[in-house]
Write a protein that binds this DNA or RNA. Structure first.
Ligand code: SF4
Ligand code: SF4
Lengths: 162, 162
DNA sequence: GGAAGCAAGACCAAAATGGTCGTAGATTGA
DNA sequence: TCAATCTACGACCATTTTGGTCTTGCTTCC
């Protein structure tokens, strides 16, 4: 349960990598207009993950507007926004789809027992809590050594009140 | 992603049901020693879920020590502890196994990229946060209309500090 | 015009999930 | 004692999801 798919996992790694590259590019000076773009192959090699698969993941991410792509020689992907502006929630949702804990929430009107299900509402709140938690964590937060305590999210998690 | 399996879903429903039965039994007076036990079939019918499947789920729950079972006529399952004392986390883990968001955490020493994976640690913290969130929610909390704001969990969620 | 890169989709194998069946053992009420 | 109820457990199966590959085509730069 509550398993993050490997695709999302890969996606986050790639995002983090690109975030780092963006920083490097910035440090290298503005005269060199290195946008920090990297090819899918580069990233795949850096982390030893199947290149073709990563390519597809990056494509979805690009389609979702989290990355910008540039074709052709020396092309590749780069962050569409600042790393601090991309939440892990967006990434995960873009890759794994908007599915969330209970079937009812995502399949929308699906679950045939929705009528006599008494557990639905409470669970929706748990779901919301996790959403807010994830939303509060940006890709930039991942790059830091984590001692930095990114105490971004406070409200919405503490209680399950409606 | 982050999908709760249907089994866990069913399990929670059953737990909640038993919690309610326990309360009813208590109200009925101590002279009738109704322990609030219900057969798997009863619960399955109440919620329209496949009886055989529910039976298996209850069995696992019983093995995990969350329920006590009693065979024979008028047998069935009852809560092993107070509803307020059973966290949703326990239930979910008992049913779906100890699997959690990243493969590395659960498969233990598995993920072959564990070496060059930079995302691992931060994710483990997210994982912990969710764990604490779930741990803070008891089965009893599920039975309430939820206006009651069970603000049980405070610490551990707010930040991802180490 | 190529080489290097992205884009998209069909396709596939393996694993997880959801669910069934059959059989065996405990308990109790008649 | 014996039949009706229950739990207990394992084998089994269908469907879905996941992870991953291949192929083909289109862009951009030199
Ligand atoms: S309605 Fe109830 S049973 Fe159906 S998916 Fe939602 S929580 Fe689960
Ligand atoms: S080590 Fe990294 S890549 Fe492997 S499962 Fe853990 S987070 Fe994912």
């Amino acid at each position: 349960m509550l398993r993050l798919t490997k695709k999302a996992d890969y996606g986050l790694m790639a995002l983090k990598y690109l975030a780092e590259q963006a920083i490097l590019a910035e440090q290298a000076g503005a005269d060199l207009n290195l946008s920090g773009a990297r090819s899918a192959k580069d990233i795949a090699e850096a982390y030893h993950i199947p290149p073709q698969l990563l390519a597809k993941i990056l494509q979805t991410l690009a389609r979702a507007g989290l990355l910008v792509s540039h074709a052709g020689t020396n092309g590749g992907y780069a962050l569409a926004r600042s790393a601090a502006d991309i939440s892990t929630f967006e990434v995960i949702r873009a890759i794994d789809g908007p599915l969330f804990i209970t079937s009812c929430i995502t399949i929308h009107g699906a679950c045939d027992l929705a009528g006599h299900c008494t557990i639905k509402e409470p669970l929706r709140k748990v779901n919301d809590s996790i959403t807010t938690l994830l939303s509060g964590i940006s890709v930039a937060d991942l790059t830091e050594p984590a001692d930095h305590l990114p105490a971004a999210m406070a409200g919405g998690l503490v209680s399950i009140e409606r």
